[in-house]
Amino acid sequence: MSAEMPVTVIEPSKGWVAIRLGALWRFRELLYFLIWRDVKVRYKQTLLGAAWAILQPLLTMVVFSIFFGKLARMPSDGVPYPLFAYVALVPWTFFANGLTLASNSLVANQTLLRKVYFPRLVIPVSAVAAGLIDFGIAFVVLLGLAARYGVPLTVNMIWLPALVLLALVTALGVGLWFAALNVLYRDIQYVVPFLVQVWLYATPIVYPSSLVPERWRTLYAINPMVGVVEGFRWALLGTGTAPGPMILVSGIAAVVTLIGGMFFFRRMEKTFSDVV
């Protein structure tokens, strides 16, 4: 009866192992259910539910507008400062939450790791992807805000999905490193919030990237979030010229981080259930 039955071979893996994207694809339904769970649980457990998706970037924008916009008179490329900050905060919040959740994802799902087999990559991927819903809600508010300030929408907006993907790849790429390390060293959970905080200032969110001297910009864009934020401002507000070169550098940096993260994650994967 068994001619067509799949045969699974279990053997010890050695050293750096293949990423096995095929396995990830076979478990796409599980990925879907985990994303669905993360979204559902997040909105069930919190009092304000979906409102958090709006409040988090919105309140940050208000604070930034008061201190950086009004008091420090930060330049904002001729755009009203609240809009200038909010455009950056929407992808940033998606990135920061995704990175934080991905970093904690393996530890948070340790019972699963100890009991059931599936490609472990599914867990951090679902943690990051679940943030897309929040992003969508915050983005609608962004459109409303742009309309309120009378900023016309342009065809440049078609680049936004690519920019969101770039933010996702960055969050996942860095998140994979931290998620795997977090299993071994619980210090990581203290490192991540600190890193996110520093990263915020290394990204042109409260200030325009035009403050960075021209010759340093390429180096600056190695931080992939520079490309994401600059891209968002350009696509939605039409500030400056198309930040193509910056986005290219950011994109390369993000993809390198992701591939490295995936290999590192896969290498550590076999020790997860031994250690968690």
């Binding site: 068994s2 039955m5 799949p6 045969v7 699974t8 071979v9 279990i10 053997e11 010890p12 893996s13 019972t111 790791l113 100890r114 009991k115 059931v116 087999y117 076999k270 259930s273 031994d274």
Partner: peptide, 24 residues
């Protein structure tokens, strides 16, 4: 090991067909 939750240090396992586990 059979459920692929823990990787063996040595040896080889062959499973014919889909495997389900009630480990917990």
């Amino acid at each position: 090991v059979l459920a692929q939750v823990v990787e063996p240090t040595a040896g080889r396992v062959e499973l014919r067909g889909r495997l389900g586990s009630l480990l917990e």
